[in-house]
Write a protein that binds this DNA or RNA. Structure first.
Lengths: 216, 216, 216, 216
DNA sequence: AGCTAAGCGAGACGGTACGTCCTGTCTTGCG
DNA sequence: CGCAAGACAGGACGTACCGTCTCGCTTAGCT
């Protein structure tokens, strides 16, 4: 779901008073990202420590404290960086929603792709860790939403607007709310294990959301 | 959302090998629950420590480690206990969904009540903390869902089944999935601050879910 | 060196207010002695705990606290009891000093026997533990000296007095000080590992003590 | 009895794998020594805890565990350091044995001084604690003897050798054994309270040792 | 080319909390 | 009522990390 390639140095860091960023060691930075993602994958977020990241990255602790404000902050940027690298590898059209004219089919396709992505073990541990931290730490939560969720939500909203123009979705519908009818259930099942997490399920969500629960 | 009064000793505890529960000090137990909820409210979950809970409760640390396996476990039971006590205070009909025959009105009412409940500051901190922990700790997550979420979800499913009998909801709808169309968006907005959290919003969700996004 | 068979219940215990000693369980008492001596031998005095003794003896902790005031107290009595049992097994004449008329030969013989006894591994660990505790804990120290050391010292003093009568030791010598010339060096070498600990050594001590360092 | 000023870092420490000693905080080290000696004096050795030393010294516990292996080890070095400082304050000739040509007088003088020193309350508690620990913990015992006792014993042996040259002590006497005739009784009376501890007593010891118990 | 200043690896430091162990007291139920 | 059992409040243990700090060592960029 990381969608924007851009803007190193990153958002959260920019808000804090910084040492001279031009002298920053890119080698260390990348080693820290790698170590953080590996450790979260191996031992889980709570047992991932700054000392552990520094040791694995072959870096002094101070180098982490100099550039990031917290473990969550490191991991967030590491994850954004990972997303960027994967997107770059995947090519330009990777994170867009198709517009074939059939909104039901397009939404089903994108939700199926999201299901697959969320099952990717490279993503799972750090993504859950960040989501959890964001629930409890409002500042990180807002960054998480803005940097990771928002771009994807925007695409869904755009696709719904396009469907409104095509007459497949009612004009009086607010796309930002409408998209939650299928996106949020998916998110909740993944985050909270409240039920099976499959392509069949997301197809059903799209059908229910488009046609409603009430008889027509 | 704690719905069942019953069943002390609680689910999580039953799974671990236990000392003699008949000798257990109820005084200490209650003091621990109180201290845990107070501390989570005052300093937040991450800064709440077992040592701190023990000190405030006037209890030895071992008494906590004897009966619970983790900070999250303590808080989960404390929260369940709080729910039980509040339900008891509120009276029998507290956690039911009205069935006036108008499914839209009934769902709107219960979602409005949920919004209000989630804003209650006594609930907010511990509830978020548990939800976050459950995202990352699967065992606790399953208990969280089973003990806190499930009873409430069951009520929604029941109400939808009743609506199916009354012809207000289509027969081919699976109520367990259908309820997610309005419950999950609400949950996500609360957990992740993805948008305003109001009565107007939940009313809209019910309308969208019942009548669908597509033109009729 | 335990010389007196007698007098259960023992001295230290008699000074504290006691529960009804007539109902005391001899089974438990003996099990506690055995457990204490075993544990001191196996893991050393500092790692021997009251809980450990109680567990190995199959006894409640309270049974220990009821009858003894400290770990050292338990061990002291256990050791006295061990001494009594060994003396009983060895027969009456075990702890006496021979009086052949040759004071040098007699002292050499008894010191050689002491060397052998102090090397007995059944004695070593508890005896060292008690001696060490007695250095630091004056109350226990006095009991240790009175119950364990004193009887043996008395025998040495008696033998020296007999030698005075026989004209083998000067009349103006104080036997209580004189005996220290050979007993204390032996004790120190054993306690503090300040030198080899052998029959040759004790023979030398007796010769030096009897004839003095100065030329005659 | 600490006789060698020199050789920081000390013996015991050199045997264990060490962090970078050049970065070591001398401020902390001295504060730890002071706190340890104070606490042993105030509450006794068994109630002196590492936690307590750290707290009084204003130091993290880890700083103690980093440089010492046990409470006894801390105290040993603290005591050695104390000895060094006192010797430094006392001047060069402090720990030597006079050689006036009269071995009896010289030995009596030095034993009287030892009696006085052992009664100094600054020494008593830590010295007893170390001696006791050394009885039970062989490694510490050997260090205790080597660092604290040995230098003093060496001086006594030297004085006896000088007396041999002067014809005041027999040529066939082993000075390392001979010195025990008066040093060990003194040590035992002090450690085990086996009798009065006075100048008269040590004078007697020297007389007995030099002239022997047997009539001449 | 030499100098200064910053980032850097390293890791000691004062702290906090961990989870375990044991202390000495108290309570329960058995014999 | 002694006893086995063991829960309890308390507190020290030794470990792991926290976030800060200081040490030499690169490694620019500026004279």
């Amino acid at each position: 779901m990381a969608t924007q390639k851009s803007t190193r140095p990153p958002a959260t860091a920019a808000e804090r008073p910084h040492p001279d960023a031009t002298r920053r060691s890119q080698r260390s930075r990348q080693a820290i990202y790698d170590a953080a993602l590996e450790l979260v994958g191996e031992v889980g977020y709570p047992k991932t420590t700054i000392e552990g990241i520094a040791a694995r990255a072959g870096v002094g602790k101070q180098t982490i404290y100099r550039w990031w404000s917290s473990k969550a902050d490191v991991l967030l940027e590491a994850f954004l960086d990972l997303g960027d690298r994967l997107v770059e590898a995947a090519g330009e059209e990777a994170y867009t929603i198709p517009d074939t004219g059939d909104v039901a089919a397009d939404l089903k396709a994108v939700l199926r792709a999201t299901v697959d992505e969320l099952r990717d073990p490279r993503f799972e541990a750090p993504y859950r860790a960040l989501a959890a931290e964001g629930v409890v730490n409002e500042e990180l939560g807002r960054t998480f939403v803005a940097r990771l969720l928002e771009p994807s939500l925007q695409l869904h909203a755009d696709r719904l607007r396009s469907a409104q123009k095509a007459g497949q979705v009612r004009q009086d519908i607010d796309p930002r709310i409408a998209l939650e009818l299928f996106v949020s259930p998916l998110a909740q099942r993944w985050l909270q294990h409240t039920g099976p997490f499959s392509h069949a399920y997301t197809d059903t969500l799209v059908d229910y959301a488009l046609h409603g629960l009430a008889p027509r």
